[in-house]
């Protein structure tokens, strides 16, 4: 990772800035559009002549009887439960598949992969019927419980991802830990997890993001507005059959990506300071 030539960093920065701009252009357009009123949206300019800040305040209160504060609290509550459930279950399962040998392991692993590959559309109705019979409709259980069982939005994906990463952790570390008297759980917790930390961060980011965006899942299982998540509330602003409040919609959806962006900004530094780089000694 050493750089030998001096012009290289400079060139890299120029390239990165240009490239970043290309990737960030949408947010610029988006900020502009969220400040426009409906009459200006069709005009080509990026920024409005008079910024409509009230798109944000009105949008925040646009659902009768509730404000977006409620929806954010709901969503954060759901996200925290789902994140904890996912991290607990997926790491354990991945460790089991990656490090332990047991009868039928290959078979179960193929099944795990199969669940990744199955087009989800035909499963929606039977699954709904099941959760309905369990009396879980209009609660957060249809999200939390599957995640606790390494399923839900992204479950098998996370397990597969973690397996691949754990396989990258040298096995002789397990062995020496074993000799030191560590149990399997000790190896999992003290040896493998710290080394697979970048992967755990990755799973955290994806899990947060996908559950934030899981519109259809939320729509199917949450009925009453007092339990609505941000994603559901957003779609309420936009009803295709009536005069749409585009400005408010864009403003609120812009706000809705802030949490995910913050999560990413906060966690991405672990890709630099990842323990893995320093944890392995030759």
């Amino acid at each position: 990772m050493t750089t030998t030539l001096n012009w290289k960093p400079a060139l890299r920065h120029v390239f990165m800035i240009l490239f970043s701009f290309l990737m960030v252009y949408p947010i610029v357009w988006w900020i502009g559009a969220s400040l426009k009123d409906s009459t200006e949206l069709s005009s080509p300019g990026i920024f409005p002549s008079v910024p409509q800040w009230e798109n944000f305040t009105k949008g925040w209160n646009s659902v009768p009887g509730h404000t977006f504060t409620d929806f954010y609290l709901n969503t954060f509550g759901l996200e925290i439960m789902v994140l904890i459930a996912t991290l607990l279950s997926c790491t354990l399962v991945a460790f089991g598949f990656a490090r332990l040998d047991f009868p039928l392991k290959k078979f179960w692993f193929s099944i795990l992969m199969l669940t990744l590959m199955m087009p989800g559309q035909v499963l929606i109705i039977p699954q709904y019927a099941l959760f309905h019979q369990l009396g879980w409709v209009n609660t957060y259980l249809p999200f939390v419980v599957p995640h606790l069982l390494a399923g839900g939005a992204g479950g098998s994906f996370f397990v597969f991802l973690l397996i691949q990463f754990i396989r990258g952790v040298p096995k002789e570390l397990d062995e020496s830990a074993k000799i030191d008297g560590c149990s399997w759980f000790g190896i999992f917790w003290r040896v493998v997890m710290p080394l697979a930390f970048p992967a755990v961060v990755t799973v955290t980011i994806f899990c947060f993001l996908w559950n934030w965006d899981d519109f259809l899942g939320h729509l199917l299982y949450i009925n009453t507005v007092d339990k609505y998540t941000v994603g559901l509330a957003l779609r309420m602003i936009n009803d295709s059959q009536s005069a749409a409040e585009w400005g408010q919609l864009l403003a609120m959806s812009l706000v809705s990506i802030i949490p995910a962006t913050l999560v990413f900004i906060f966690l991405q530094k672990y890709f630099v300071d990842g323990i893995a780089t320093t944890g392995i000694k030759g």
Binding site: L92, G96, L100, F102, P103, L149, A150
Partner: peptide, 21 residues
């Protein structure tokens, strides 16, 4: 198999989830 029981314990969340859900 180095650890049949431990193996199943570790993957049990997924296994239960798969079988039930």
């Amino acid at each position: 198999w180095n650890a049949p029981l431990a193996g199943y314990l570790f993957i049990s969340p997924w296994l239960i989830g798969f079988l039930v859900l």
